[in-house]
Each structure stands twice: as structure tokens, then as C-alpha cells.
């Protein structure tokens, strides 16, 4: 295994483009090192991107949106004074990933690029409408968060391409987001079902919503029927029931060591209801801090 510490994304991309065998980028390492240790994936080329300028920064842009560096840890997101005010759901979702120790290392970008359908931060990112900036041999492109993972452990990134930043849109007034997951313990488990919702209200009426389910399909599911179930409503019981039914209907889960098809399908609806209520309360409370 060759270990590299490039000083720029350009260099990182060049190393990756030229590499043969398996290449991995190393930020927090909380997936890469687990796979290495367990002999699941031993990269031939490991590119540590933490020496690149700006990767540790959380920046509020002039339009009110946010740029999150690819080596920013979950703990740094949680500790940030303002990010959680705008995007509490996203910050909480990232905070749910692993333990205190994992939070000291794990990153949004890593959580996204690991390609796990159960990644906690991914439904929240997609619900938020986040994009990532991708640089590679053919230039730079901006990709919606939902278009990165293509299946368990697989992404749409080409050889030599690297995510250089996560872009979170501005939080408009009257917006709110939330994320919950179901796990059997209180901590340390992988989501059996996850749900992230970002919505906007005008008065008491929901005007826009993005509902995303995790761990119930090969990738996180951005589901329009779930959104339609609550858009135009005041999140009354009927809307919540419709949302729950739509969420359960959207599921395409598997039975595995963490949960059954029946369980995931049922609980997806339960979580969607609970998450919508929190996001709605936050939106009504005003959205942007």
C-alpha cells in the first residue's frame, strides 16, 4: 500500500488517475481503516487529503449557504456556532454517526462516498438539497448528493475524481429539517431505517418538502410521493398518515442481520411521521437563525 499526502486536490486527482489497483481517499478513515483491518479492502493507493488547504473549514458563503471542507469532522460540525442553527437536521444526522471517538474523525464526505445505504448523514444531505463539488482529470462538476451513491459501496465518481467540498444551500426563512434513525440500542448501531426531511412553511401550510429514506433500498431514497403527502397540508393527522403510508410504500428493503423487510417497511412510516413533526416545528419556529 502506497500512502500519499498531496498538498492540493489537483495533485490528489493526478495520483488517483495514475494509480492502478484499488485507490482510496483518506479523510477520517472510519470506514477505510475498518475495511483495511478486516481485510475487506486493502487499497494499493491511499491518498490522505487532510494536508490540502481549506479541507478543515466550515464557511458561510455570501448567499447564506455553506461550504463544508471534506476533512471537517462530525464533532467540528456539531461544535460550530451557526451551522446547526440553519441545518439542525443535517448536523444531528452527522452527529449520530458512531461514537464520540468516531465523531472526532468521521466526515460528511466520507459518509457519502462510502456508499452505504444506511449512512446517517446522507438522507439529511439529500433532503437539504446539498451538492458536492467533484474535481477530476476532466475538470470540475457539481453533483447532487443523491447522485453520488449508485448502490451499496458504489459511487458515480470516475477514476481520478475526488470530492473537494460539500455545498449546503442557504436556509430560507420558514424552513426546517430533521433526521431520525431507528437503531436497537441507543448508540453505536448502523441505522436499520433512517429518514431525513427538509420542508418549508408559509404560515401553517407546508409549501415544499424533500423526504429521504435511508437503509430501505440500495441507496438513500428521495421520494416525491412522501413529499406530496405533506405539501399543501398543515401536517394534520391525515397528512401524517398519508406520509407514513407513502414512506412504507417507497421502501424496497432487504432482510438482514439488522432488520427484516416487514420491520423496515413499518418503521419507515413511523419515522417519517416523527421526523416530519420535528422539521415542521423547526420551520414554524422560523428556519434560519
Amino acid at each position: 500500500m502506497q500512502y500519499h499526502t498531496p498538498a492540493s486536490f489537483e495533485d490528489a486527482s493526478k495520483i488517483a488517475a495514475k494509480a492502478t489497483g484499488i485507490t482510496r481517499f483518506l479523510a477520517g478513515g472510519t470506514d477505510v481503516l475498518v475495511q483495511l483491518r478486516a481485510d475487506i479492502v486493502t487499497p494499493d493507493t491511499l491518498i490522505d487529503i487532510k494536508h490540502i488547504d481549506g479541507v478543515h473549514d466550515i464557511t458561510r458563503n455570501s448567499d447564506g449557504g455553506w461550504t463544508i471542507g471534506v476533512a471537517v469532522t462530525g464533532a467540528e460540525m456539531t461544535e460550530h456556532a451557526d451551522l446547526g442553527g440553519d441545518w439542525p437536521g443535517l448536523v444531528e444526522a452527522m452527529d449520530l454517526v458512531g461514537s464520540t471517538q468516531i465523531q472526532g474523525r468521521a466526515t460528511l464526505t466520507g459518509n457519502l462516498c462510502n456508499g452505504s445505504p444506511a449512512a446517517d448523514s446522507v438522507p439529511a444531505m439529500i433532503a437539504a438539497g446539498a451538492t458536492v463539488t467533484v474535481s477530476g482529470p476532466n475538470g470540475t462538476r457539481e453533483v447532487a448528493a443523491e447522485d453520488i451513491a449508485t448502490g451499496p459501496g458504489r459511487t458515480s465518481l470516475a477514476q481520478g475524481e475526488i470530492v473537494t467540498a460539500v455545498n449546503i444551500p442557504p436556509r430560507a426563512a420558514g424552513g426546517g429539517d430533521a433526521y431520525l434513525r431507528f437503531i436497537p440500542r441507543t448508540e453505536m448501531d448502523i441505522a436499520v431505517v433512517g429518514c431525513g426531511i427538509n420542508l418549508a412553511v408559509d404560515g401553517d401550510t407546508i409549501t415544499a418538502a424533500r423526504v429521504v429514506l435511508g437503509a430501505v433500498a440500495p441507496t438513500a431514497l428521495l421520494d416525491q410521493a412522501c413529499a406530496d403527502a405533506i405539501i399543501g397540508s398543515t401536517l394534520d393527522d391525515a397528512a401524517l398518515e398519508k406520509l407514513a403510508a407513502a414512506a412504507s410504500a417507497a421502501c424496497n428493503p432487504i432482510t438482514d442481520k439488522r432488520g427484516t423487510i416487514e420491520f423496515r417497511t413499518k418503521v419507515a412510516g413511523v419515522l417519517a411521521r416523527r421526523v416530519a413533526k420535528i422539521a415542521y416545528e423547526r420551520a414554524q419556529a422560523g428556519g434560519a437563525s
Binding site: 478486516a38 436497537p184 440500542r185 441507543t186 448508540e187 453505536m188 448501531d189 448502523i190 442481520k257 439488522r258
Partner: peptide
Amino acid sequence: DVFLDYRIPVASD
């Protein structure tokens, strides 16, 4: 075969 999925009680449980 890992503590991630062999779920012994954690402090918060």
C-alpha cells in the same frame, strides 16, 4: 462478527 453488530449494552442503554 464485530461489536458493531454483536450488540452488547452501551453506557447510554
